[in-house]
Amino acid sequence: MNCSSAYFDGKSSNRRAVTLTLGEDHLFIKGDGVDLTVPNSELRLSSPLGSGNRSIYLKSGAKCEFNDPAFARMLQKKLGKGGFFAFVHRWENSLKLSALALVLLCLAVWAFIRFGIPVLSEQIAYSIPVSAEIAMGEKAFAMLDKGYFSPSEVEKSEQEKITALFNGMLANMAEDQRNYRLVFRDSELFGANAFALPGGTVIITDDLLELVDHDAELLSVLAHEVGHIRGRHALRQVIQNSSSGILIAALTGDILSSSSLAAGIPTLLVSARYSRDMEREADAAAADYMRSQQIPLAHFADMLQKLQDSVEQKGRGDAPSALDYLSTHPATAERIARLNAGN
Results as ranks from 00 to 15, higher is better:
G191C: 04
L326H: 08
R316H: 15
R114C: 13
S259Y: 15
A286V: 01
N53M: 15
I255N: 00
A86D: 11
G116Y: 13
K77S: 12
I117A: 07
A284Q: 11
A249L: 10
D206H: 00
S243V: 14
I204R: 07
A140T: 04
S55A: 15
A333H: 07
A125N: 02
T163N: 01
N343G: 11
E279C: 10
I265A: 06
N40F: 11
V212Q: 05
V183P: 10
K77V: 11
S292T: 03
E225K: 05
T21G: 08
G200T: 04
A341G: 05
A99M: 15
Y57K: 15
N179T: 13
F115Q: 09
S121D: 02
I248L: 07
D288T: 13
Y274N: 01
D25F: 07
L95I: 01
N343P: 09
Q308K: 14
I128M: 01
G231W: 05
L251N: 08
A70C: 01
A216N: 04
Q240S: 14
L208Y: 03
V311Y: 12
G317I: 15
V18K: 03
K146L: 09
R54P: 08
F84R: 09
Y180Q: 05
T328E: 02
E279W: 00
A284S: 13
E155C: 13
N67C: 00
Q305N: 12
N340D: 12
F184W: 04
E24S: 13
R15Y: 02
S127G: 11
Q123N: 11
G317H: 15
V34L: 05
Y126G: 10
L219G: 07
S13W: 03
T37E: 12
K78R: 13
T252M: 04
T252C: 08
S121H: 01
E155T: 12
A135E: 05
R280K: 06
F300I: 01
R280M: 02
M290W: 02
L120Q: 14
S258D: 14
P129E: 08
G10P: 03
Q237V: 00
R230A: 06
L269C: 13
R73N: 12
A298K: 06
L95F: 02
Q123T: 15
D288P: 09
Q294C: 01
L304Q: 07
D25W: 12
P266D: 11
Y126A: 10
F195S: 02
E225W: 07
R114I: 14
R44Q: 04
E24P: 14
A171T: 03
